[in-house]
Design a protein around this nucleic acid. Structure first.
Lengths: 365, 365
DNA sequence: CTCCTGGACGGTAACGTTTCCAAAGTTTAC
DNA sequence: GTAAACTTTGGAAACGTTACCGTCCAGGAG
């Protein structure tokens, strides 16, 4: 039985509907409590310097009227930035970004800060516009996963900025990121240890991170005395699984295919695996080793559990938010920090296949 | 070679640092352009009723000073709600929520609206606080994935509200959701058709959706003349994969285990699969059929690709945002809508295993 | 009893924008 | 040539809050 078509019915129950009613202000509260405006303000802000009896009278009035402070008016006062942080990032559907968002949301929430989200899809101009918009909203600070391009326009914004995952040009600000180069080296070293010498690396067109990971790859190869076959360094036109799948398929059908693949992004890893699933069904195709960058859900549940180089992404978001909150409250006046989180190798099987076709090392788990 | 420890160094390059400089206001612009305040406002807001020559003079001044409108002050004016929507939801790490967030962000962004996020973790009081906070920020509208409990306090907020994924009590507002009951029936029907009669259903403690999906399950069973074994209706204490894994393991070790499982949530499906991977390794355990609710990434890449009942979650977010924007702009004054998106069955293999242990129907893809 | 001190409270001026009204300037109509 | 109508412009009020500055009262000291 097929699902019903999309149905559009007015709900039938009768409940109060959100009314465009005028919300009570402090003045209303003051009148009702029979006190002055200043007194209400004092009560709302902690109540220092107000007699208990007066304060409770005010609180009663607040409850009765359902008053709630207008944060916008509050933020208008000079020096009182709004208690919101802004987070500008790419695709929230990417667990990498979603994890950062969630973690920073939690940290900000503990301090009573909201997080305003700006999502940008690989569009430097769009990013700039989004940032300007958010600055106009008087946010207390900006967390940015920056795109390529000059970010010096932020210097005059009068707002603390923390860059996440990659640095930006043209401005000196805090930056929290993972050890991309180290991770790239870690992954490549691991594959080299299994005896692989033809290791392909797939790179998303992302600004910065890609370059660092490639650098780690090269460094590992050089250290091992393995010459890099430049035809195995694949710069994808897009950072999607589909692009990686297509590239991998082509790669594996070459006369001299790689015996191992290093996918420098979680989505790329997915694409690689999709391609390999097809390709290795055909006779004569050995299954190459695969290492991914960034862990992902279900990586351990795939037919061959996937070995990855990973770091604590949630921690990335937490650190960024904490740093930004400290900057915003002026409690942190150190020079801009550069915080780099380590990566670690998680061996699950796909990366432990030796160059001769057999799996080595522990697999699973 | 292990990764380097977390390193914390000041960045060395010398770039302008974000300064706490006073931002120029319209008054500054007016002075510089030699015009009145009102004229600047008119130019900033589209420039109707201003001579071209005057307007361009103002624009020059704006550029020179780097003026940018203070959205907070703007939002203070009566009737001018800030151009932000609020989205209150649970765990952003859940692709389900992340998809909603992304979709609504896109739609809102097209209209020049930002989205303020409030994340709440299964805490009715926390949800209420988060919502109040956001209302205080004068958002133009609220999108809420509501928790259990009374939401009538929203009636006086003076802000349009759209509920997403599940309705709320105590207030009449728009609601956009998927056809939970239909989806539950669809999944169960499918399993029944494979000859299963002992179908377990795993339910997260989530408000509302769980109940509807269970209802679909029961309706399907009744229609097929299969009596529901209540011991196969598993109410989990938590909506996590771990809880589902544990429950599934226990379930499969019963004297009379189910021949099929219906996991009513994406995380639950994951837990079920984890448990089955362990359990079915042991001799004497046939692999039960599995159908999940909500599609998830890599579902088709698992050893047995996973059959799911799914709907267009992104569309859920898009519709909600669009509806809210229309409500906020007063261009939509219809009575509250109830929009239900259909579910469809995606057969991939795990749900097509027959009760006798053999896979039936098409698998893969 | 008076003066002083200090806490409690009330009032008012911002904050930066939009909106409205009036004034000034310009065109059109007679 | 004058009146009327319209366009363009300037200025002031208001939005709801906080910060500051007085005022007022009570109580203690002289």
């Amino acid at each position: 039985m097929p699902c019903p078509e999309r149905e559009v019915n007015p709900v039938s129950e009768t409940f109060p509907r959100p009314a465009e009613s005028a919300r009570p202000t402090m003045i209303d509260v003051a009148k009702r409590a029979g006190v002055g405006l200043g007194t209400v303000s004092r009560v709302v802000n902690g109540g220092a310097g107000v007699r208990d009896e007066t304060a409770s009278r005010v609180r009663v009035a607040i409850d009765e009227l359902g008053f709630q402070r207008n944060e916008v008016a509050r933020a208008l006062r000079p020096g009182k930035k709004s208690s919101s942080l802004a987070l500008v990032l790419g695709d929230l559907t990417n667990p990498f970004y979603a994890t950062i968002a969630k973690a920073s949301l939690e940290v900000a929430g503990q301090d009573g800060f909201a997080v305003v989200l700006g999502s940008v899809d690989e569009d430097p101009e769009g990013e700039r516009r989004a940032i300007q918009e958010l600055v106009g909203r008087q946010v207390a600070g900006l967390m940015i996963v920056p795109d390529q391009g000059d970010h010096s326009f932020l210097a005059g914004a009068g707002v603390p900025v923390v860059f996440v995952d990659r640095p930006a040009h043209g401005i000196e600000a805090d930056i929290v990121m993972v050890d991309n180069e180290g991770g790239g080296k870690l992954a490549t070293d691991h594959l080299l240890q299994q005896g692989h010498e033809r290791i392909a690396i797939l790179l998303a067109p992302s600004y910065y991170t890609t370059g660092r990971r490639l650098r780690g790859y090269r460094r590992a190869c050089r250290a091992a005395g393995v010459e890099v076959d430049e035809s195995l360094v694949i710069q994808l036109p897009e950072g999607t699984a589909e692009a990686a799948e297509k590239a991998t398929r082509e790669l594996m059908h070459r006369p001299d295919p790689p015996t191992a693949l290093f996918a420098s992004t979680n989505f790329l890893t997915e694409g690689v695996l999709r391609a390999l699933r097809e390709v290795t069904k055909q006779p004569g195709f050995g299954e190459p080793a695969v290492v991914g960058f960034d862990d992902f859900r279900l990586a351990d549940m795939l037919p061959t559990p996937v070995t990855v180089v990973a770091s604590d992404i949630a921690e990335l978001g937490r650190i960024a938010a904490r740093l930004l909150l400290d900057r915003a409250s002026k409690s942190d006046t150190r020079p801009p920090q550069r915080i780099v989180l380590p990566c670690q190798l998680i061996q699950r099987g796909s990366g432990e296949r030796s160059a001769t076709g057999k799996a080595a090392g522990r697999s699973g788990g």
